[in-house]
Every structure is written in C-alpha cells, then in structure tokens.
Design a protein around this nucleic acid. Structure first.
Lengths: 201, 201
DNA sequence: GCTTGACGGTGACATTTGTCAGACGACCGG
DNA sequence: CCGGTCGTCTGACAAATGTCACCGTCAAGC
C-alpha cells in the first residue's frame, strides 16, 4: 500500500481526488490538508510515503510546504499537482526537492500512474513543460524587483508601494521600470502578467 | 437513475468528479465535456436530466452554455459548479435559468446532495452568496464600459483599446474614467480587479 | 413631447507613470 | 584591492493616464 497525503484547498476537488484514488487497490489516502501549514502538521502525524501538493493555496503555498516536509520526513516523496504549468513553478518545485510535477489538465488516470512511478523511484515531469522551463531560463528579476512587482499586482500606486516597502517613490519607479524592461513589457500591468505567467512572483 | 452531464475543462478534476459521483448508486454520469461548445453537442446526444457546468473554460463559458442547453432541452436542469463565488456570476447564472450554484470550496458530499435536491425540484444556492449578490446590487457598468474595461485587463494601452474597439482615444479614456469611478477604484487596474471580483466582466 | 441615459466624440488640464543619468555604500569573487 | 552587482536614493524629463466640461445623436420611458 502506498500511503498518500493529499493537500488541496478546494474541498470538493480534494474529496473528488480522494474518491479517484480510492479506486486504486494499492493506494491509500491517509490524510488530507487544505493549506501549506496544515500539510506539515498532518504529514508529521500520518507519515505518508507520498505527499500530493497543490501550489496556490491560502495559508502557505505548496512548494515551500513541500520543502518543509522533506526536511522533517526525508523518506517522504513530494509531488506537485497544480492548475498552472508555469515554468518558474516547475523550477522552484524541483529546487525544493519535488520528484513529480503534474498539471490538472492531464487525464485523471495519470495520477495513480504517476504515484506508482514515484514509488518506483522515478521522476514524473511533463516533457513539454520541462522544455519550456529550461528554454525560458531562470528568473531575471532581482529579489527586490520581485517584491516591488508583487506589491503592484493589486493596482497600488507608486506611493502605496513606497510606503508598504519603506522605499522612496523614485526607487519604486526605478525597480518597476527595470522589471518592465526585463519582462519586455510596455507597462507594469503587462510586466506583472508576464512575471506571473512565468511563475516568478 | 439521475443522468448527469459533467462539464469541466480540467481533465483531472473532471475525472475525479466522475469517480466521486460514481460512488452514488442513483447517479450516473452519461457524458463529459471540456468546454461550453462541446457541452451543447454532448447534451443533445445524451439528453441528461442535469448538466453540471463549470463557468470559466476556454471555448465558451458555462453560463451561456447553460442558457443554450435550456433552450434546446427544456427538461434538463442546469447546475453551476465553480471555483469563484462571484456575485455577478450567481446573478447571471440565475438569469440564464440555472437552478443551482455551487462553489468548489464546499464539501464533496454536498455535490450529490445538491443533485438530488435539484431532481426534487428544489433550487440550491449558498445563502451567504445569495445575500452578497443581492446586497452588491446589479452591474452598474454600461455595456460599453464593460467592453472597454475588459479590453484593459491584459495591460493594453489606451491606444490599443481604441484600435481594437474602433473608438477614439478620448472616448476610451472617458469610459475608463467612468468605470474607475463607478467601481470606486483609483486606477484602471483596481477597476478591473473590482469588476472581476464582482463577476461583471 | 420632454427627459433621461447610453453612446461617441473633442479639447484642455493635472497627475501619474516610465525613463534616464547619476550618486553612494555594501558585498562578493577574482 | 578592484570590478561588478545589488540596493537605495535624487532630480529631471517625456509619455501615458485620469478628469472635466462640453457637444452631438439616438432610443426608451413617462
């Protein structure tokens, strides 16, 4: 029996995935969690063989949760199951020690197959996605540029961002400007969208 | 047996929901579709009692697909199952003749329960969501303001939008300005986000 | 018939945003 | 110890954005 911990914030999707995995005779869902925080707690309680993690969740994203779990339970394999196949997500997931990266677009039966391949010591990564992640290259934005761009996603003005990050307005404008150029965008909105599409924020 | 057509673009979620409904002895998934267009075709083939529709899908959104299906098959009940409980979505879904509106945050067992309640002629709507939709009031944006705001989501400049909608730049600026005021935002980015949060785009 | 609102437009204006050049200290690798 | 990068800041400038006042048409409603 492969013991699986399932981490996904949308309760109905989580329940549906449990029932999907319930069809497999050699897979047992030993725990569920709805956030990154909760994931670590439940992992320590249930000591699963495999954790299946969503990325975008309120209360701790799946990638950092995966890293924490690997620290605490080195025997436990981390798999990512996400809606968005963003190159930066894949890259960060791999750096955090994940051994599989699945997107929810792929057919349902691939989930159990991927879990078994992970149990057998394989890595499971969509080849097209891997190519995209490699060809896109690493995140060109400096940490601070990321901060400023991330602070701009909600439509804040330069003044707002400056206050929030304790910077001068000119500095904020400079970071935004260089982020716009590095993303080859025409304004901050495009810059934010491109950075998000790459998984850089 | 209640015959259900399941419409959801993410294959893995769709498959998981099928397996979830497969646990219910009185429910049978007679068809699946991954887009609004496909939904209508499959509905005509399979003549389900109930269609379960996601809203945000590439290739025709679920609400208009639901309206089309109601036209073609008046006996078929339309249920919406969506990630986002946006007031405007609920309102539009009701106007399009939907009898249920579920969010994927709610527990998995509520899905089958909701389907049975719909079979019994009931409507199923989250009370809190209904209150939000009523208190928020209807969409204050004029159709054209919606168009212009929707054209601004991807970071297009005023000039781009003007060309795309065959308008003068001044007109575009005027519509954006009035949309910003009606949404009580400070700039177009906030306006877009508030309008999206309400489900007005 | 008159009013109202949506639609489309113009022109002027203030503000915000984006760009550039430059300056300073910190830190890191060679 | 020297060059490069990063972070921070300033000041100045051009371009884009947001606001306002105003004008016209047209269709719907009272």
């Amino acid at each position: 029996m492969i013991k699986v911990l399932l981490v996904e914030d949308q309760a109905m999707v989580r329940g549906a995935l449990v029932s999907l995995l319930g069809l497999e005779p050699d897979i047992e869902v030993v725990g569920e969690a709805a956030s990154g925080q909760e994931a670590l707690t439940v992992a320590l309680e249930t000591k699963p063989d495999v954790v299946l993690l969503d990325i975008e969740m309120p209360g701790g994203d799946g990638i950092t949760a995966g890293a924490r779990i690997r620290e605490a339970l080195p025997a436990c394999q981390v798999m990512i199951l996400t809606t968005f196949g963003r190159p930066g997500y894949l890259r960060r997931a791999m750096e955090a020690g994940a051994v599989a990266f699945l997107v929810k677009d792929s057919p349902a039966r691939e989930l159990a197959a991927a879990i078994r391949r992970v149990r057998d010591g394989e890595r499971v990564i969509d080849p097209g996605l891997a190519a995209a992640a490699l060809s896109a290259g690493p995140n060109p934005l400096s940490p601070r540029e990321c901060d400023v761009l991330a602070a701009a996603v909600d439509g804040s003005t330069v003044g707002d961002i400056a206050v929030r990050l304790h910077l001068s307005e000119g500095t904020v404008r400079n970071y935004l400007s260089s982020a716009i150029q590095k993303t080859r965008a025409r304004n901050r909105i495009e810059a934010v969208q491109r950075a998000q599409a790459q998984g850089w924020l």
